[in-house]
Design a binder for these strands. Structure first.
Lengths: 256, 256
DNA sequence: TACTGTGAAGATATTCACAGCT
DNA sequence: AGCTGTGAATATCTTCACAGTA
């Protein structure tokens, strides 16, 4: 861990627990759906079901934000949307750059969920000169040479890395040097960054490996229940059975 | 939450902690790299640095698997690769189906990390009849109608959903009914599944929102340090600063 | 000597269960 | 009566620190 000072400034400064922060987007999504259906209020029970968590957890989470509910009634949908959005810094329109426009980069560029959630694709960047100028999702791809100026001109502070693993650290270094302080990394590599820079990673193969672990374990469980449900399970439906593990580290897709 | 019995059979049966399971793939990747460079042994310190965790955590994690190290020396790389692979059920060649061959589905299909990590793309499935027969990543796309037979014929137990949000639950239901018990969901929806089925989700917009939260917080931190590091941070490098939050829930990319 | 393995302490996260408001 | 907000109990995860051993 290098010279490591206060590793992870995250939970710092009397804040909202990380676990709660990670769930706020989930609540926000569920609330937005309710809002679109003009539902005026929800109970913790209903909202929790829609978000796939249990109601005690949801209420506890909300208690960190303040007391926005009404006892005996529930939560005002619009008001909650506003409060959570604000907490997440979403009224702001975050410019984002995507580096590495392969299959995955293109998929990300085409993702409709950006604009609607407070993000704007400021630029697409690729190292292949042949890509330069080609529009992807309506945005012309620019060459890596311009990375620094693009970031500075647009005041970009969030970068998405969708390059092959080999290029990721180098791209990361340039992003950081140019002023990016938050990185979403799809390349299957551990990035090293200076203090103060946040990195989140998404890694497909890791997710699959975690699933394989549980899958394998299921196979070795012919001890209890062997009578019923041969294939088509008939059990009671739970909201998204997985808790994605207590985790502390997520997984990754990959580059083109 | 429904009738919920023992929600999440995960940590059950005197097992390895979830948090540890989530890190095993990380260790495995680092070890594989060492193995390819013919490095015979590593210390917990070195391996931890390569995996982006701290050594105490790594040693504790390994202690759940057994005592595979040698005091005063370190761990035998090949042996650890073998043990962790086995633990993850990876010698096995898991057949996987990808449903929804849009930009993202194609990116996943092209992902090289599959085969090398014990997974095999058994089939690509899409609802668009126009896609049927078209090869993507060398594999011909098949129509949704054949979903059930594909799964049964290939003994598929892991499915990847890369469809638009609206189709996800329906696809999920069919996968589960056909015998799939582990699902990796890229659609921004909460899937509901029967007990015994594992779901992991990957959600781009959630990741970005979490980054935005921290980004915003950084902005509001002109209290301490304002003297040094104006842009280009000079701080000491830590291995991937983020701890991805204590989490318990991850995020999502999106469908085509 | 150098490094692992692990109890015990500390930090976080989840869940319970109920008092308190509307 | 119904539902929130939260202290307290519990479970899980991380880190410390050192005894044990090759």
């Amino acid at each position: 861990m290098a010279t490591g000072r206060t590793h992870r400034p995250a939970t710092r400064s009397r804040g909202i627990p990380e676990a709660t922060v990670a769930r706020l987007p989930l609540y926000l999504r569920a609330l937005t759906a309710l809002s679109e259906r003009s539902v005026p209020t929800v109970s913790s029970e209903e909202l929790a079901a829609a978000a796939g968590v249990n109601s005690a957890k949801l209420r506890k989470d909300f208690s960190y934000l303040g007391s926005y509910g009404t006892r005996g009634v529930g939560y005002d949908v619009e008001y909650l949307v506003y409060q959570i959005s604000r907490e997440l810094g979403l009224p702001q329109d975050w410019p984002v750059v995507i580096v590495g426009i392969g299959n995955l980069g293109a998929a990300l560029a085409n993702y409709g969920g950006f604009a609607s959630r407070g993000f704007r694709v400021a630029a697409l960047i690729d190292a292949d000169p042949a890509m330069a100028g080609k529009p992807v999702a309506g945005i012309p791809v620019q060459h890596t040479d311009e990375l620094e100026s693009i970031i500075q001109d647009n005041g970009v502070s969030i970068g998405v890395i969708a390059t092959p693993a080999g290029a990721a650290q180098q791209v990361c270094d340039r992003l950081v040097a140019a002023g990016v302080t938050s990185i979403l990394n799809f390349a299957p590599t551990v990035l090293s960054v200076p203090d103060g820079v946040d990195v989140r990673k998404v890694d497909l193969s890791i997710e699959l490996q975690i699933l394989a672990f549980h899958e394998q374990r299921k196979a070795g469980e012919e001890a209890t229940a062997t009578a019923e449900s041969p294939a088509v399970p008939t059990a009671t439906r739970t909201e998204s059975a997985t808790d994605q593990g207590p985790d502390g580290d997520v997984p990754a897709v990959m580059p083109a």
